[in-house]
Amino acid sequence: MRIISNYELYFCKILYSAIPMSMDVSSNQFVWVVNQEMGSIRADYCTIYSPVHAVSTCETKDIDETPVVITLLLTKKNKFGELDFWKVNDEPIKNFFYLMENVEGSKNR
């Protein structure tokens, strides 16, 4: 368990801005890493068995120019549930800060 990072907060804010809800994630949010190579995280109160649903996505690219899709998932109570990173070739993400510089926009689902 750890505190959410600045780049993770950055993506949460971008993805929250695409949905018609007034929500945010605290900089004190505890998370656990779901997938170490991709960097996906889940809220500390959201177990692996807790259902979550996708509400917003954005696209970017890693430093090797491979596309990365980032998805915000919420719990049933519409609280932050998960931030999912998926590099389309299933290789580990190399540079999360490069992802921030190359975000192409977000859309709700």
Rank of each mutant, 00 (worst) to 15 (best):
E59L: 11
Y10R: 04
C58A: 00
A18Y: 08
T47M: 09
I41T: 00
E8D: 09
I4W: 01
F96C: 05
N102K: 03
I14G: 06
L74R: 06
F11D: 06
P92A: 06
Y98R: 03
V69L: 11
I93D: 05
E101D: 09
D62N: 07
F85M: 04
I48D: 14
K107R: 11
F96W: 01
L9F: 08
W86N: 08
L15E: 06
D44W: 00
Y16E: 07
E37H: 07
I63W: 03
V34I: 10
L15I: 09
I19Q: 06
R109A: 12
I63V: 14
M21I: 15
V55M: 15
S56N: 07
I48K: 12
V33K: 11
I70H: 06
R42F: 04
P20W: 11
V88R: 01
V52Y: 11
T66L: 08
S106C: 10
M21L: 15
D44V: 00
E65T: 10
W86M: 05
A54E: 14
A54T: 13
F80P: 02
I4Q: 01
K79Q: 15
N6Q: 12
N95S: 09
L9G: 02
F97S: 00
T60K: 02
F11C: 05
A18E: 12
H53M: 12
D24M: 14
E82R: 10
M38Y: 04
K61Q: 11
S106D: 01
A54L: 13
R42S: 08
S106E: 08
V52S: 12
V52I: 15
E82F: 05
T66K: 11
M23C: 15
P92C: 03
W86R: 05
D62C: 00
M1A: 06
L72I: 10
K79H: 13
D62T: 00
N95A: 05
Y10G: 02
E104C: 07
S40L: 03
Y49Q: 15
P92M: 08
G105R: 02
G39V: 07
Q29M: 11
Q29P: 07
T60A: 01
S27Y: 14
I48S: 13
Y45C: 01
S50Q: 15
C46T: 10
T57I: 13
E101I: 01
E8T: 04
L9Q: 06
W32Q: 13
M1Q: 02
S56F: 08
D24R: 13
V34N: 10
F30M: 13
Y98M: 00
T47G: 13
I41V: 04
I3W: 02
R42H: 00
L83A: 06
E59D: 10
N95E: 11
Y45S: 10
P20Q: 13
Y7E: 10
I4G: 00
E82M: 11
E8F: 02
L83Q: 05
I93V: 09
K76I: 11
I14Y: 06
K87L: 09
L99H: 03
E8M: 04
I14D: 07
N28K: 13
